[in-house]
Amino acid sequence: MTAVLRVLIVDDEDDLRETMVKRLKARKIIAEGANSGPQALKILEDKSFDVIVLDVKMPEMDGIETLRRIKDMKPEIEVIVLTGHASVEFGTKGMQLGAFDFMMKPAPLSELLDTIEQAYNKKRTMDR
């Protein structure tokens, strides 16, 4: 890995988001958190990321709408949709809107890291 992987975690659950950011940082990943869709979009105006981990169920703006706007704004960023719903409905919806993959909460970190890496590899291939 020459360049450093940059990941944005979007989740309104503070405890979850912060812990995930901490664990990714411990693994030498540039990780940042956003507690809502609008905040995530605001951060994206200044900074760029390789992968975004996006929660579906959030107040204000839900994950699906946030995904749509992220893809409008920066289509090159790969998005992994994370849902607490035991339903694939939101996941498939996300895939249709251009998400790289979707995962069910609670997802073990190892699985999440694998998926993040796959998404990053895809992005790098596309960038070239």
């Binding site: 979850l16 849902t83 607490g84 339903s87 909460k105 609670p106």
Partner: peptide
């Protein structure tokens, strides 16, 4: 599915925190 969602969120917190 509602129960799953409500429980899965804190469950995710528990797993992530025990992970950290």
């Amino acid at each position: 599915s509602g129960v799953a969602h409500e429980i899965n969120n804190p469950l995710a917190i528990i797993m992530a925190t025990s992970g950290i």
